[in-house]
Write a protein that binds this DNA or RNA. Structure first.
Lengths: 208, 208
DNA sequence: GTCTATAACCTGATAGAC
DNA sequence: GTCTATCAGGTTATAGAC
C-alpha cells in the first residue's frame, strides 16, 4: 500500500503534462517577466524536460502568449461583469469592484505589475477591443458616473478607483525591500482598504 | 562655412562619449527593462561601438546600476524635500507633491513602471535606508496626517496620494494600445488632475 | 510522450590593431 | 579612445533514440 502513496513532490503531479508546464510558466513568467524568464527554468519548475516544453508549445513565445492572454483576462475580467450591469446602483458597483479586486490581487500580488509591464511591448498581440476599451464607452458604470458628476471626465474616477486599489500591489516591492512593513501588516492594510476605498470614492464624487 | 555646419545626427554629439552612452542607456533601459535591453542596442543608439561601451563601463550591469540609481533618485527625490519640511502646512504639502510629481512624470512617463519593475530583482543593490523608509518614519508629513486622522494608518493616505498621481502613468500603456485616448487628451487629463487630486485628498481626509 | 544530445543562434565581453 | 574581429558562455529549439 505504501508504494502507492504519492510522494510530496507529486502533489501537483496528477495534472496533465501540459497543465504542469502551464502552471510552471505562470509562476516563472509572472515573477521574472518574459525576457528574464528562461525556458529551462520553466521546464525544471514543471519537473519535466526542456524538449518536452517545445513539444507541447512549439516556442517560448507561443507559451508566453497563452499565459499572457490568461493573465489579462484575469486582471480585466474582474471589472467587466460589474461595469456593464444595468441594474446595480453606482454605490454597489464601487463596493464590488474594490472588494473583488483586492481579494483577487491578494492571491495574485504580482499580476498587475506583470501585465502592465509586458503590455508595453507592441510585438505581443492584443485584441484592440479588449475590456478596457468597452469600459470607457457607454457602459452602465460610466453613465452612472457621468450622471453623478457631469462636470468631469469620467476617466478621472476610473483612475481613482483603480489607482487606490491596484497601486499598493505595484508599490509593494518597495515596502518589501525597505523591510518597513511585514507581509501580515500589508494584508491587514489591504483588508482595511476594502471598506475604506469605497467610502473615499463616494466622498470624492460629492466633493465640491 | 557650410562644411562646418553640424549634421542633424550630431545634435547630441557635443556630449562626451561617456555621456552619450549614458543617455542612450537611459532610453533603452527604461523602455525595455534590464533583461530585454541589449548592450548592442545601447551602443547603436549612442552612435558608438560596442567595445567602447565596455571600455567605459566594464559591464552591462555596472552601466545599469548607474542608470538605476539615477532613476530611483529621480522618482523618490520629488517627495523627499517636501515630506520633511517642518514649516509647510499639510495642505500645501499635498499640493506640492501632486504637482511636482505630475510635472516630472509628464517628462518621464515610463519612469515609475521601470523603477517599480526592476526593484523587484533582489540581486540589484539598494540602500536599505532609501527615502521611502524615511518617509514612513516620523517625517513631518506623516505626523501631520496622524494629527488630521489619528484613527487610521497614515500609510493609507500615502498610498492614496501616490496611487492617484502615479497610477495613470502605469496604466498608460493600456490606453495607448486600446487607442482610446490620444497623447494630447492624456496630457490634458493629467493637467486637470494636478488641481483635482489635492481637492480629493482633502475631502478624503475629512470624510466620515 | 519523454528523454539525451546537439545544433543554431544570440549576447556580453575581450584582444589587439590603429 | 575608438575600432574590427572574435571568443566564451548561455539560450532556444530540434533531431533522433527509446
Amino acid at each position: 500500500m505504501i508504494y502507492n502513496m504519492p510522494k510530496k513532490k507529486q502533489i501537483v503531479s496528477d495534472l496533465s503534462t501540459e497543465e504542469k508546464i502551464k502552471e510552471a510558466a505562470r509562476k516563472v513568467f509572472t515573477e521574472k517577466g518574459y525576457a528574464a524568464a528562461r525556458t529551462r527554468d520553466i521546464a525544471e519548475e514543471a519537473g519535466i524536460n526542456l524538449a518536452l516544453l517545445n513539444y507541447y508549445f512549439r516556442s517560448k513565445e507561443k507559451l508566453f502568449d497563452e499565459i499572457m492572454l490568461e493573465k489579462m483576462q484575469q486582471l480585466f475580467g474582474v471589472m467587466f461583469p460589474i461595469v456593464s450591469d444595468e441594474t446595480l446602483p453606482l454605490e454597489n458597483k464601487i463596493d464590488l469592484i474594490v472588494q473583488n479586486y483586492i481579494d483577487m490581487l491578494i492571491k495574485n500580488p504580482n499580476l498587475p505589475l506583470f501585465v502592465l509591464n509586458e503590455i508595453r511591448n507592441p510585438s505581443k498581440t492584443f485584441d484592440k477591443n479588449f475590456p478596457i476599451s468597452k469600459m470607457l464607452k457607454n457602459t452602465s458604470l460610466v453613465n452612472q458616473i457621468k450622471e453623478a458628476r457631469p462636470d468631469l471626465n469620467p476617466v478621472h474616477f476610473l483612475l481613482n478607483i483603480l489607482g487606490m486599489t491596484i497601486f499598493p500591489f505595484i508599490a509593494k516591492p518597495i515596502f518589501g525591500h525597505v523591510g518597513l512593513i511585514t507581509e501580515k501588516e500589508f494584508t491587514s492594510l489591504l483588508n482595511e482598504r476594502k471598506k475604506l476605498i469605497p467610502v473615499w470614492i463616494k466622498a470624492i464624487l460629492k466633493s465640491k
